[in-house]
């Protein structure tokens, strides 16, 4: 038997007032694409469902002085269609378009995808590669700005405190000339949880890579940056030989598991293949992103 109360604040002031003294029971809900199946599967303690969907100020996607700001309530459909995101973070638009299916994309929010903290969270690798910051607000309006690489702790675990809300996610527009690429590798074209996903942002000068940001999903207990592989690539021209050595290095910094979708061995192999493909794409085609479903 689930015991729950419900509030639907229309702004942040109202929200924090309504959860005062009850933070430990709070469950924030928006798209509900994870929350409702989870509620059915578990036998949860009494809770206060705080519906965020009426808070308009959490919906905006905007650009300000070279920084892109995405309200936590922005849906996958909105991200995939946003001109701002398609222009300045095409790898994020690509990941949003690859999540679930049209019915879930109309509901699933970026804040929810990040707060759920699945190792396979579709928006996490692009946000890691874009060096995004998670902005939160908690009781008595305490605000925090958390670099996304510090945000995830483990499977479905984050640094968020009980009653602390993601308000928006920001990332700096990558420096020109930069190139990026995103590949989600799933076992089917829709409703796929990724086997491996890769997002890269490269600052290039001709064929020379100055700076690399490489992020991976579904190959560790949390979405990760591949720091060693970035070091391997930086300062070098993108050649077949360099890509091969990157594909070897990346295997040292991932720790994939075997599950119903793929074996650890397969994931390790595919990570190398997809990394090479993503780096080639970024280097050759500039800011093109694709879905790499088979």
């Amino acid at each position: 038997m689930i015991e729950a109360e419900y509030v639907a604040p229309s702004n942040l002031g109202e929200l924090f007032k309504s959860i005062e003294g009850r933070a430990e029971r709070v469950k924030f809900v928006a798209g509900c694409t994870n929350v409702l199946p989870d509620l059915r599967a578990q036998n949860p303690a009494p809770m206060l469902l705080v519906d965020l969907t009426g808070i308009e100020e959490l919906r905006r996607i905007e650009e300000n002085n070279g920084v892109i700001s995405i309200g936590s309530l922005a849906t996958m459909t909105e991200l995939a269609a946003s001109e701002i995101i398609r222009t300045h973070g095409p790898i994020l638009a690509s990941a949003a378009r690859a999540l679930g299916n049209p019915l879930t994309r109309n509901r699933a929010t970026i804040g929810g995808n990040i707060a759920d903290a699945s190792p396979a969270a579709d928006t996490a690798p692009p946000l890691l590669a874009l060096e995004a910051t998670i902005h939160t607000e908690g009781a008595s309006h305490a605000k925090r700005e958390i670099p996304v690489e510090e945000f995830f702790i483990g499977p479905n675990q984050t640094v968020l405190n009980q009653g602390e809300l993601i308000t928006r996610i920001t990332f700096p527009i990558p420096k020109d000339p930069s190139a990026s690429s995103h590949i989600k590798f799933g076992l089917r074209n829709a409703m796929a949880i990724s086997v491996v996903s890769v997002a890269v942002v490269l600052e290039m000068q001709g064929n020379l890579c100055h700076r690399a940001r490489i992020a991976l999903g579904s190959v560790a207990p949390k979405p990760i940056r591949a720091y060693l592989t970035e070091k391997e690539l930086e300062g070098r021209k993108i050649t077949e030989e360099v890509l091969e050595s990157c594909a070897e290095v990346v295997k040292k910094e991932i720790s994939p598991i075997t599950d119903i979708r793929a074996s650890a061995q397969y994931r390790e192999h595919v990570t190398g293949v997809l990394l090479k493909r993503a780096l080639w794409q970024a280097a050759r085609e500039g800011e093109n992103s694709t879905n790499g479903n088979i």
Partner: peptide, 15 residues
């Protein structure tokens, strides 16, 4: 006007 799964929507979100 937007297609959604009714099973993944809280009834009160349709208020």
């Amino acid at each position: 006007g937007k297609a959604v799964n009714a099973c993944l929507t809280l009834a009160l979100q349709a208020n």
